[in-house]
Protein backbone atom coordinates (compact mmCIF):
# COMPACT_ATOMS: atom_id res chain seq x y z
CA UNK A 1 0.00 0.00 0.00
CA UNK A 2 1.17 3.58 -0.71
CA UNK A 3 2.65 4.86 2.55
CA UNK A 4 1.08 8.23 1.76
CA UNK A 5 -2.31 6.59 2.26
CA UNK A 6 -1.48 4.83 5.50
CA UNK A 7 -2.45 7.12 8.36
CA UNK A 8 -0.49 6.35 11.50
CA UNK A 9 -1.67 9.15 13.76
CA UNK A 10 -5.30 10.03 13.15
CA UNK A 11 -5.44 12.86 15.66
CA UNK A 12 -2.56 14.76 14.09
CA UNK A 13 -3.01 13.49 10.52
CA UNK A 14 0.43 11.93 10.08
CA UNK A 15 0.98 9.30 7.40
CA UNK A 16 3.51 6.49 7.22
CA UNK A 17 5.30 8.44 4.47
CA UNK A 18 5.58 11.43 6.86
CA UNK A 19 7.32 9.12 9.35
CA UNK A 20 9.68 7.84 6.66
CA UNK A 21 10.56 11.41 5.67
CA UNK A 22 11.38 12.27 9.27
CA UNK A 23 13.51 9.13 9.65
CA UNK A 24 15.45 10.17 6.55
CA UNK A 25 16.05 13.66 7.99
CA UNK A 26 17.71 12.09 11.00
CA UNK A 27 14.82 12.12 13.47
CA UNK A 28 14.79 8.65 14.95
CA UNK A 29 12.97 8.69 18.29
CA UNK A 30 9.35 9.12 19.37
CA UNK A 31 10.28 12.30 21.26
CA UNK A 32 11.61 13.86 18.07
CA UNK A 33 8.70 12.77 15.86
CA UNK A 34 6.11 14.18 18.20
CA UNK A 35 7.82 17.55 18.29
CA UNK A 36 8.00 18.11 14.56
CA UNK A 37 4.70 16.56 13.45
CA UNK A 38 2.65 16.35 16.68
CA UNK A 39 2.57 12.55 16.34
CA UNK A 40 0.97 11.21 19.50
CA UNK A 41 0.06 14.68 20.77
CA UNK A 42 -3.62 14.62 19.84
CA UNK A 43 -6.65 14.27 22.10
CA UNK A 44 -6.01 10.52 22.50
CA UNK A 45 -2.44 11.26 23.63
CA UNK A 46 -0.97 8.37 21.60
CA UNK A 47 -3.39 5.76 22.87
CA UNK A 48 -4.29 4.98 19.27
CA UNK A 49 -1.01 5.49 17.42
CA UNK A 50 1.67 4.95 20.06
CA UNK A 51 2.27 1.25 19.48
CA UNK A 52 2.25 1.69 15.70
CA UNK A 53 4.85 4.44 15.87
CA UNK A 54 7.09 2.29 18.05
CA UNK A 55 6.66 -0.59 15.62
CA UNK A 56 7.54 1.54 12.57
CA UNK A 57 10.69 2.89 14.28
CA UNK A 58 11.74 -0.67 15.15
CA UNK A 59 11.16 -1.92 11.60
CA UNK A 60 12.84 1.01 9.86
CA UNK A 61 16.00 0.94 11.97
CA UNK A 62 16.01 -2.80 12.38
CA UNK A 63 15.86 -2.66 16.17
CA UNK A 64 14.07 -4.93 18.63
CA UNK A 65 10.67 -3.45 19.49
CA UNK A 66 11.45 -3.54 23.21
CA UNK A 67 14.41 -1.20 22.69
CA UNK A 68 12.28 1.57 21.16
CA UNK A 69 11.36 4.06 23.84
CA UNK A 70 7.80 5.23 24.22
CA UNK A 71 7.44 8.99 24.53
CA UNK A 72 7.43 10.65 27.96
CA UNK A 73 3.96 10.87 29.40
CA UNK A 74 3.34 14.21 31.05
CA UNK A 75 1.08 14.82 34.04
CA UNK A 76 -2.67 14.75 33.10
CA UNK A 77 -3.89 11.81 31.14
CA UNK A 78 -7.31 13.45 31.08
CA UNK A 79 -7.88 17.18 30.83
CA UNK A 80 -8.95 19.04 33.96
CA UNK A 81 -10.59 22.46 33.76
CA UNK A 82 -8.56 25.36 35.11
CA UNK A 83 -11.68 26.50 37.01
CA UNK A 84 -11.83 23.14 38.77
CA UNK A 85 -8.17 23.43 39.78
CA UNK A 86 -8.76 26.97 41.04
CA UNK A 87 -11.79 25.91 43.10
CA UNK A 88 -9.88 23.04 44.65
CA UNK A 89 -6.99 25.37 45.46
CA UNK A 90 -9.37 27.93 47.01
CA UNK A 91 -10.95 25.21 49.19
CA UNK A 92 -7.58 24.33 50.68
CA UNK A 93 -7.01 27.84 51.94
Amino acid sequence: MDPNNVIICRCSDVSLQDLYDLFEEGYTTFEELKRIKRVGMGPCQANTCGKMVQWEIAKYFNKPLASVEFHNMRPFTMGVKLNAIKEAADDEE
Binding site: K81, L82, A89
Partner: peptide, 25 residues
Protein backbone atom coordinates in the same frame (compact mmCIF):
# COMPACT_ATOMS: atom_id res chain seq x y z
CA UNK B 1 2.36 26.10 39.81
CA UNK B 2 -1.03 24.70 38.73
CA UNK B 3 -2.80 26.28 41.71
CA UNK B 4 -1.17 29.69 41.19
CA UNK B 5 -1.60 29.56 37.43
CA UNK B 6 -5.30 28.69 37.61
CA UNK B 7 -5.92 31.57 40.04
CA UNK B 8 -3.99 34.08 37.97
CA UNK B 9 -5.47 33.20 34.62
CA UNK B 10 -9.05 33.09 35.89
CA UNK B 11 -8.55 36.53 37.44
CA UNK B 12 -7.09 38.19 34.35
CA UNK B 13 -8.78 36.20 31.56
CA UNK B 14 -11.83 34.58 33.22
CA UNK B 15 -13.28 32.50 30.33
CA UNK B 16 -10.00 30.59 29.98
CA UNK B 17 -10.97 28.85 33.22
CA UNK B 18 -13.33 26.66 31.23
CA UNK B 19 -10.47 25.11 29.23
CA UNK B 20 -8.97 21.77 30.16
CA UNK B 21 -5.28 21.48 30.95
CA UNK B 22 -3.75 18.59 29.04
CA UNK B 23 -0.06 18.83 29.89
CA UNK B 24 2.36 20.76 32.06
CA UNK B 25 6.16 20.75 32.09
Amino acid sequence: FLDDMSKTVTTLLPPIGELRVIRQW
